[in-house]
Write a protein that binds this DNA or RNA. Sequence first.
RNA 1: GCGGCCGUAAUUCAGUGGUAGAAUGUCAGCUUCCCAAGCUGAACGUCGUGAGUUCGAAUCUCAUCGGCCGCUCCA
Length: 537
Amino acid sequence: MSDAKKDSGDLMEKLVALCKRRGIIFQSSEIYGGIGGFWDYGPLGVELKRNIKAAWWEDVVRANDNIVALDCSIIMNPKVWEASGHVGGFSDPMVDCKECRSRFRTDKVAYVSLAKGENVLLAAAVEADDDPEAVAAAIATANSKARRRIENAGDELTKTVTFLSAIPEGETGSCPKCGGELTEPREFNLMFQTYVGALQDSSAVAYLRPETAQGIFANYKNVLDTSRMKLPFGIAQIGKSFRNEINPRNYTFRSREFEQMEIEFFCHPDEAEKWYIHWRDTRYQWYVDHGLQSDKLHLRDHDPDELAHYARGCADVEYDFPFGQAELEGVANRTDFDLKAHQEHSGRDMTYFEDELWKTEAPKYTADKFDGDKKAAKKAAEEAKSKMPYRFTPFVIEPSGGVDRATLAFLCEAYTEDEAPDEKGNMQTRVVMKLHPRFAPIKMAVFPLVKKDGLPEIAHEIHNEAKAAGMASFYDEKGAVGRRYRRQDEVGTPFCVTVDGQTLEDQTVTVRDRDSLEQNRVPISEVISYVRQRINR
RNA sequence: GCGGCCGUAAUUCAGUGGUAGAAUGUCAGCUUCCCAAGCUGAACGUCGUGAGUUCGAAUCUCAUCGGCCGCUCCA
């Protein structure tokens, strides 16, 4: 194991231990042995996560006139998931090899037979996406003798490719890797199932949503009809989603219950590319602005062959976690795929009518433009109104971020060990969470330097004032002040306010900066606004 | 899902068949006018869980749950 890898592994272990010890993240149901893929946020963790969500909400929903928000139910009519493709289409049947334990998608295993007349020259099981690839892969397995025969066969060569997915039920294939026997195909559906109502029969089956997006699409018409929004506009939502991940791993990164913060931004198809670029760059910058400015943050455009079938463009904001580079947020141009799918499945009209454009151009369709033929004018108008540029299905740009992933990335980025002097001036290792002040669970801690001489009373007063002013403040009078500073460093508190002997004389306190360790004297009357101003800048 | 390693206090770990430990942290008090290791005292353990072997199991066996690493998967 390389040193870098070992160090990053250490970082993850230290972070996990710190998060447990300081009440940031706990394993769910820990007293019962836990449950894989589920995590709880402790007293400080929930504040951190709330602050991250609040920042997103302020920057996305409140700051943009063309974005409104929504809070959809987690369980929806199951037809939603048929329309979206989560039931049926995408839940690929899989097979396992009983010999070598490899797993394959049935539509990726092909059986190739190359024959000249009735003479089979080559039969092979291969992994492939399509027929030509399968043939090529099969030939690659052939020995030189067989290869020569195949080449010599020329036009007489018959190529038969059968994918495992097309093999009749009851029959099993052989493993492309080892030739072993494969299991029957099995459905892997990543959606959690439940039953709505007391009767647990098949008609009552419902699903916990695997993404928040579909609730937005299903409500697109409602929002359009009630919010007085016009294209382009976005609908934002923060909420829990659930995926029955085969193998949850990497702390909270791949959880089975997770929270998404997501925008579905609806726009004219001609403007989709422009908005895609806009959101991709805006969302990337958001992470930079909140502390992931290091070279660990990446904006990665997907290769065309990597794109989902419905997407025309997709970029991931990725972060170098200790366990590897992984996605924080995906920004995709989903085209009109979703609205069209819901229109088809629900029978509801999902198109958009540009009435302002129509109003200005309607005079083109008056009778006098058609030699006084009112009927022809009306017909032409109706026809024009029914299609572009007046009526169309909007395209959707989807910036979809993982709240828990963002939280984890900010935690990883914030974890720092540096050197600070102890009371004797010896340098000691200091653990400090350099969280963005906006995210810090506690913004300001208030200490009396010593627990006597009336200092605690003054400190209490400052603390109460801070709370009244809406500042997340924390009071601590226990033990040596250095220890209190270090405790706050560990949870990322940006400022510590200390009441000392001089306070009694001139009504000033010291404000100590988490990162620089510098202290400034500030009048008590100004301390809250001082801290607030330093946090916001 | 497969393979390997692991699970003991809040945290990090020691303890290989015979009375559960250390350090750090936490709490109470003292001390202390500014950066954790000054003093005194205290609390804290279903040894992941269940079964088995044994006179006796943290220790051995099996199962199960959870975690880490590598594959695999990720609409």
